Simulated scan of single mutants.
Amino acid sequence: MKTSNPVLARLGQAAERERAAGYAPAGPYGQPGYGQPYPGAGSAPAAPPTVAPMTIDDVVVKTVTLLGITGLSAVAAWILVPDALLGVAWIGAAIVGLVLGLIISFSRMANPALVVTYAVVEGVFVGMVSKFFQEIAGYQGIVLQAVVATFGVFFLMAALYKMKVIRATPKFTRGLIAAMVGVFAVMMINLVLSLFGVDTGLRSGGPIAIIFSLICIVVASLSFVLSFHEVEEGVRLGLPQRYSWVAAFGILVSLIWLYIEILRLLSFFQGDD
C-alpha cells in the first residue's frame, strides 16, 4: 500500500505489523496483548483478534463527539468564568491548548484521553473568546453568525472534495503547508510586537486586518482538504480504528481556527456600524 503522505505511510506500516502480530486490546494491567493470554488465563494462548480498521463513520462519530465536548465546555466556561477572570482563562486555555495540540500533532499518537482533553481546553478558549466579542465588546448575535458561517464553509469544502473539485495533490499539499506555516509565523511575530506596543495593523480592524483575516479564512478552509484526504487515505491503508481520533482531531483544529477567524472578521464589520 503506497501513499504520498509519509505520516500515513508510517501509520499504515504500523497497522500491518499489528495485524501480523495479532494485536489485542489492553489487558487488566494496562499492558497491550499480542496474541498472549492475560495473567491467570491459563496456559492455552488466546486466538489473536483482528484489528478493526478505521472507517469514515468512525471519524464522523469521533468528530461529532469532540464538537459536542468542545461546545459543552465553551458554554460552561461562558457561564461559570466571571468577567474578571476572562482574560486569564482565555490566555491560559490558549497556551495549554497549543501545547496539547503540538503534542498530538507531532507524536501522531492515537490517545483518546489526550484528544478529549484538548477538546475540553479548546472549549474554554472558544467560550472565552466568544463571550468577549458578544458580551464585553457588545457585538450582539456575532457568535451565532460565526457558527453558521463556519459550518457553512465546512460543508461547502466537504462537497467540493466529494465532487473532486479540490484534491490534495502533492503540489497542493506542499503549497498549503507552506501557507499555513507562513500565516502562523506572521501571527507569532505580530503577537511578539504587540507585547512591545507595536501595532502592525493586522488585528486592528482596518483594511490590512480585513485582508489578513480573509487570507486566514481561506487557508483554514483549504486545510479541510488535507483532513479529508487524511481520512480517505487512512481508510484505504486500513489504519486501526483508534486512529479515527487523530483524524477527528485534525478536523476539530481546522473548525476552531476557522471559527475564530470568522468571528474576528465579523467584528471588524460590526465595529464600523
Rank of each mutant, 00 (worst) to 15 (best):
N5C: 09
P6R: 09
V7E: 09
Q13V: 09
E18A: 15
E18Y: 03
A20Q: 06
A20W: 00
A24Q: 13
P32T: 15
G33K: 12
G42N: 12
A44L: 11
A46Q: 11
P49D: 11
V59I: 11
V59Y: 04
K62C: 01
L67R: 05
G68R: 09
T70G: 12
V75Q: 02
W78G: 02
V81A: 04
P82T: 04
D83H: 02
V88E: 08
W90F: 15
A94Y: 14
A94H: 13
A94K: 12
I95N: 03
L100M: 14
I104G: 03
S107G: 08
R108C: 08
A119G: 14
V120S: 11
F125K: 07
M128W: 03
K131W: 01
F132I: 07
F132V: 08
F133M: 11
I136T: 14
I136N: 07
Y139W: 09
I142H: 03
V147W: 07
T150N: 09
A158V: 08
Y161P: 06
K162E: 13
V165W: 09
R167N: 10
P170I: 15
T173K: 12
L176Y: 04
A179M: 12
F184Q: 10
M187S: 14
M188W: 12
I189G: 07
I189H: 03
L191Y: 11
L193F: 09
S194C: 06
G197E: 04
V198A: 09
G206W: 02
P207Y: 00
L214F: 07
C216P: 00
I217R: 01
A220C: 05
L226F: 01
E232R: 12
E233G: 07
V235L: 05
R236G: 05
G238N: 04
Y243A: 00
S244G: 14
V246R: 04
I251P: 00
I251L: 15
L252K: 07
V253A: 08
L255D: 02
L255S: 04
I256M: 01
W257S: 09
I262E: 03
F268D: 00
